[in-house]
Design a protein around this nucleic acid. Sequence first.
DNA 1: CGAACTTATATGCTAAACTATATCAAAATC
DNA 2: GATTTTGATATAGTTTAGCATATAAGTTCG
Lengths: 108, 108
Amino acid sequence: MKSSRLQGLPEHITKALVQGRKARGWSQAEVSRRVGLPQTHISGIETGRIVPRYDTLLELLRLLDHDLVVVPRPLVPSVKALVRGHGQPDEQPLYANGDDDGDDANDR
Amino acid sequence: MKSSRLQGLPEHITKALVQGRKARGWSQAEVSRRVGLPQTHISGIETGRIVPRYDTLLELLRLLDHDLVVVPRPLVPSVKALVRGHGQPDEQPLYANGDDDGDDANDR
DNA sequence: CGAACTTATATGCTAAACTATATCAAAATC
DNA sequence: GATTTTGATATAGTTTAGCATATAAGTTCG
């Protein structure tokens, strides 16, 4: 059973935030210092208690060398495939990750 | 001179919202009815007076058959190129558009 | 063990997203 | 040119993101 109702950001985003941060060896306090938000807020976002504004989320993602791109729906699979097969030192799973891969499961 | 400070969403997103809506022949009231937000709020978002939350923006984009994808920075150009060269009946410029194309110009 | 570090939770406050309603100027339609 | 539609603005109220601070529980490390 995997449907734990999260009302915050979709899992794949919080995952990107947490994994990206840890990949850099940063604590929430470190991110807090760099991006300006209080550590308590970072925590709230990462654990899904808070839905950030668009600009806030973008700031966090950019700090971790990511970006938010608007994509026409029919192209989403292609884009995700492209993203999946990249050579960044950011992603660790690649094969180990029994979890989802799943598309998304968000909605208010 | 193109640096009119917008404090709302970046132009390329509001553009996607407005153009996508008009491409469907929808009024703000129509979008309002479909997505649940008041027309006045749609107006505020489209004109850059409001920075919506992530989930709100996603709802609007999805209504217009778009999506928000997290992309590693180095892949952004490739993704944008992919998005640029698609066959959707949503984009009209293709050659006419002396404007920007420019990456983005946001930041809080 | 104790000290420093890390993450999550709690409380109080401010700003802004969001709701609801009314209205106005401009454009479209008759 | 009157009516309708459309988009923007104004006011008032609710909710919640975001700010500041304190602290508790869990690591890690001396």
